[in-house]
Structures are given as structure tokens and as C-alpha cells.
Amino acid sequence: MDDIFTQNRPLIKRLYQEERKSLKQLKEILESEHKFPESSLAFYETKLRDLLGVRKKFKREDWPVIYQHHLNSNKKNTALYLDGVKFPWRKAWKEIRRSGAREATIGEYMD
């Protein structure tokens, strides 16, 4: 079953990352239009994450590094890319604040 996912990685990546389809929408498209076997959302989530390495979001531990890079670039809103897809700076800033990356970075330099 892994073969059908690996063979269709470009399609999956385009739909999920570039067109920003939800996991549920992706599952419905793949099963109805591309003859993927019917499976649970959890199954699709696992295949995307573990087999294909496809994701829409950065991990929580990525945000302190991204914020530090932002500080090192004189606070310029540099472009972020995840698997070749541009990640909007507006969303990045929201995630930096949500993750606590600003506080973690400040705390590291106060020691």
C-alpha cells in the first residue's frame, strides 16, 4: 500500500501543501478520483507524516530557531519555506508568539 502513496507524492504534496486542502479533503479526493483504498484519517495522517514526510506546519521546536534567525537578520521579515512552499510571515509571527519562542530566546541570553 505504501507504493500508491510514494508514486503519488507530487500530487499529494500539491493538494495538501500548495492548495492547502484539509486532510479530510485530501482523503476524499484521493479515494474518489485516484482510486486510493478507503482508510481512516489517522491512517492518512500517518502516511503523510512518516512515509512521505509531508507536512503543512513547522514543529514547535522549529520556532525558536526561526525567531533567532529573524533577530539575526535585523528583524527583517525574511521568507520561510516548508518543503519548498512559502509559509506566510503573518502566520509565522503568530506561531512564534504562540510557541513561546520569544521568551525562550530571551531567557537563553540572560544567563
Rank of each mutant, 00 (worst) to 15 (best):
K35V: 08
K76S: 13
L71I: 14
K35F: 10
R60V: 11
Y81A: 15
D62R: 09
I66C: 01
A42G: 15
A79W: 02
V54T: 14
N74C: 07
S40K: 05
E31M: 11
R60A: 15
P64V: 05
L30D: 07
F58Q: 06
S32L: 03
Y81T: 14
S32F: 02
W89I: 12
T46V: 05
E31I: 09
K56H: 01
L71D: 05
E33A: 05
V54D: 06
K57W: 08
R55L: 00
N77M: 13
E31R: 05
K75D: 07
L82N: 07
H70F: 10
L52V: 12
Q68W: 09
T46F: 07
L51C: 09
F87C: 03
K75R: 15
E33N: 04
L30V: 13
F58E: 04
N72E: 13
I66N: 04
K86G: 03
P37F: 03
N74T: 11
R49D: 06
A42E: 02
G53K: 02
W63L: 09
E38C: 01
K57T: 10
E33D: 10
L52R: 07
A42D: 12
K56G: 12
K47T: 06
K76V: 08
F43V: 14
Y81M: 14
F58P: 08
R90D: 14
H69Q: 07
L52C: 00
D83N: 12
E33K: 11
L48E: 03
P64D: 01
K59I: 11
E45R: 10
D62A: 08
V85C: 11
R49P: 02
K76E: 15
W63R: 03
S40T: 14
H69T: 10
L41D: 03
